[in-house]
Write a protein that binds this DNA or RNA. Structure first.
Lengths: 150, 150
DNA sequence: GCCATGTAGATGATGTGTCATCTACTGGTG
DNA sequence: CACCAGTAGATGACACATCATCTACATGGC
């Protein structure tokens, strides 16, 4: 690790701007969602993935794969969401080790109530300031970076 | 909040890709830094800002302004860093309410040891996969979004 | 059938972020 | 000087993330 390739001026500016945007944006989105609906971004993501399947049920390992969360984080988070009545756990007949996570009626109501305001906020804070070209360039950039992360 | 402007297909893909990249990248950077140097990204940022001033001392409110952190988060974080010997607090003569945060020798050693590996990781995971045009486009995009966040 | 190895998931300890609230000092206005 | 709004910072309670570890079941080789 001798004499690393430091970032040049362009990279440095870009990196700092990215970090700053990322932090501020996440904070704002989290705050809006929390204040308006009592859900965190994490709750929101879990509920979105559950409602994506009609039955509203998933194996935790599927959720983990989709969300790319640590297994332990997911388990703890589901426990908290269960205590708040947003999801329940059910046994899995096929696999004795496994379980199902199932969205509750209350969970469905919560996500339905939260979604419009959240999407509106994403649009207002993020997409409204960008051109169509910037949006497609961002998708490309994120895909390029993700390729190298795996 | 009736009938929000939902995201179209392009926006949806871009947003999901961005969120995914962001989450994975942050996790990787944090893990590398933590494993190789025992510092978190947050520690790193604090120490970088302290070493930016020659005296290695700042008022907490300055740090807060630069880092754009919640005041309470900063205060808690400084307390933890103090317990680990990375910084100390000193009284502020000019302002009876105030204080100084000062980097310790140990803090200087820690950041000096951590920086090369961290920069190398940022380069490897992020910049090495991008063209110069993508980098400048990102800086522009982040600046545009930040403009609308304030 | 028995064992080794792998996989699904939960859990406790610990560090971190947020919110609400508190104390103490400052600085301007009457 | 007395008052009061504002500012600097700390703190306790609680939600969240990570790490190491644990249990239980699955599966393939012998």
């Amino acid at each position: 690790m001798n004499s690393p390739r430091w970032l040049d001026a362009d990279e440095q500016r870009a990196w700092r701007a990215y970090l700053r945007m990322q932090g501020r944006l996440t904070a704002r989105l989290n705050r809006q969602l929390q204040a308006d609906s009592g859900l965190s971004l994490a709750d929101y993501d879990v509920l979105v993935h559950l409602t994506d399947r009609e039955e509203g049920r998933l194996r935790p390992y599927e959720l983990q794969r989709d969300l790319q969360w640590e297994q332990s984080r997911l388990s703890h988070h589901l426990t908290r969401m269960q205590h708040r009545g947003l999801v329940t756990r059910e046994e899995c007949a096929d696999d004795g080790r496994g379980a199902y996570v199932v969205i509750t009626e209350e969970g469905r109501r919560a996500i339905a109530a939260a979604a419009p305001g959240h999407v509106e906020t994403v649009r207002r804070l993020f997409f409204d300031g960008l051109t169509r070209e910037q949006v497609t360039a961002l998708e490309r950039l994120a895909a390029d970076v993700l390729d190298r992360l795996d």
